[in-house]
Design a protein around this nucleic acid. Structure first.
Length: 272
DNA sequence: CGCCAGGGTCTCG
DNA sequence: CGAGACCATGGC
């Protein structure tokens, strides 16, 4: 099997693909990952922090895995508390992906009140039922011509209505996901929150994982617990927690959040 | 069986 | 504005 080295280093591929950003990658018994970047089939493996992919996929992989993110600068901006430092130590090389807009938005619309394994199951079911021959994430126009019952058959439950409505809005041109790239983060968040089934949390996931807004902080139940501990047990409203996270976690708050999230989720019992 | 999950929306005070 | 009910599904 042929492999090409992708220039750039310091990538922890397992952590990156297991940290609840993208849900369709699969690790083979041979130890490499297979998946799709958009519609392009890609296999990838990591050795000593360096990324190797199938010939021809170097460019798209470098972009998707964000090998250009300045990790040392990001780490220098990490907050200096024990939780953040421990998370950094445990997750060094974990990168925030640059995902295609639609599939990121769609998968996180289906994510509400679901565990990571369930989100993966729904994503795979949608790809199998509606996807292209290579089972890329079904495009908006495909879902737009479907119906709520067919989406529910993929395990979406009440989320089916939201996904269908957003797919139809994108297809009709009401929701210009690509055009919204030029908006500043606050305006972009407002635009996303205007979509059915998209609240602040899902909007921040899409801001962070697809729109390259590395200061966006999705606050789910796990990060909520982390912030609760950071605040010494003091609770707060959603907007209070958001302000606190932004101030406390710094200019790359989204990166810090992802490291904290992964550590909390993988080893929930370890209290620091 | 009860509890929980990378929540959003609507209603009521 | 803030709290609570409700929404489906699957794993444990």
């Amino acid at each position: 099997m042929k492999w090409e080295l992708v220039p750039g280093g310091d990538l922890a591929l397992d952590l990156t693909l297991q940290s609840g950003q993208a849900f369709h990658w699969e690790k083979t018994p041979q130890g490499y990952w297979v998946g799709l970047i958009g519609e392009i089939p890609v296999r990838a493996r990591e050795d000593g922090g360096r990324l190797f992919v199938n010939p021809g996929a170097e460019k798209i992989a470098a972009h998707y895995f964000a090998l250009d993110h300045p990790l040392e600068e990001i780490y220098a901006a990490f907050p200096n508390d024990s939780q953040s430092r421990q998370a950094l130590h445990a997750c060094r090389g974990l990168r925030i992906l640059r995902q295609p807009l639609w599939e990121c938005l769609a998968t996180f619309i289906t994510s509400s009140m679901k565990q990571v394994a369930h989100i993966r199951a729904m994503s795979l079911a949608l790809r199998a039922k509606f996807g292209t021959p290579v089972q890329g994430y079904p495009q908006p126009h495909v879902l737009a011509r479907s119906d709520e019952l067919s989406l529910r058959a993929c395990g979406l439950g009440y989320r089916a209505k939201h996904l269908l409505a957003v797919a139809r809005g994108v297809e009709e041109g009401c929701f210009d996901l690509e055009g919204w790239r030029t908006l500043n983060t606050a305006d972009l968040r407002c635009a996303l929150v205007g979509l059915p089934g998209v609240g602040v949390k899902v909007a921040n996931c899409v801001l962070l994982f697809a729109y390259e807004r590395l200061d966006a902080v999705p606050i789910d139940v796990w990060i909520g617990r982390v912030l609760l501990r950071m605040r010494g047990g003091r609770r707060g409203t959603a907007s209070q927690l958001a302000r606190y996270a932004h101030r406390r976690l710094g200019p790359y708050a989204g990166y810090v959040q992802q490291y904290l999230f992964h550590v909390a989720r993988v080893s929930p019992k370890i209290a620091t």
